[in-house]
């Protein structure tokens, strides 16, 4: 059996609930390293949450960033990741 990241999402626009603070990002890449869902992608000198639609909303990126460059909010009500069998 292979680990299959089977994740369900509510329909609807989550809004841009994770952003990068371009001034603070040093491009260290810890956000990408600790993101299991490959949300963070290198773009020039910094990282951006380009694959936000794949986010599982765990918050590892916000917690791990030493430079306070991750702005971590919340998806709009009733949107975003939906877990079953939790």
């Amino acid at each position: 059996m292979k680990v299959d990241m089977k994740v369900d999402y509510y329909p609807g626009d989550t809004g841009e609930f994770i952003k990068v603070d371009e001034e603070k990002c040093t491009g260290c890449g810890d956000c990408a390293k600790f993101c299991t869902r490959n949300v963070w992608v290198k773009d020039g000198e910094i990282y951006r949450p380009k694959n936000l639609k794949d986010c599982a909303e765990c918050g590892a990126c916000w917690n791990i960033c030493d430079f306070d460059a991750v702005i971590f909010g919340e998806p709009k009500g009733g949107t975003g990741v939906r877990f079953e069998f939790g």
Binding site: K6, C58, G59, F83
Partner: peptide, 27 residues
């Protein structure tokens, strides 16, 4: 880590024929 875990023979046997229904991640 999860893949190594479910590949352990003792677990593999117990999950034989099963289907991944949902995956999750949290802190």
């Amino acid at each position: 880590y999860m893949q190594n875990l479910i590949d352990l023979p003792i677990i593999k046997e117990k999950l034989e024929g099963g289907k991944v229904e949902a995956w999750g991640l949290h802190l």
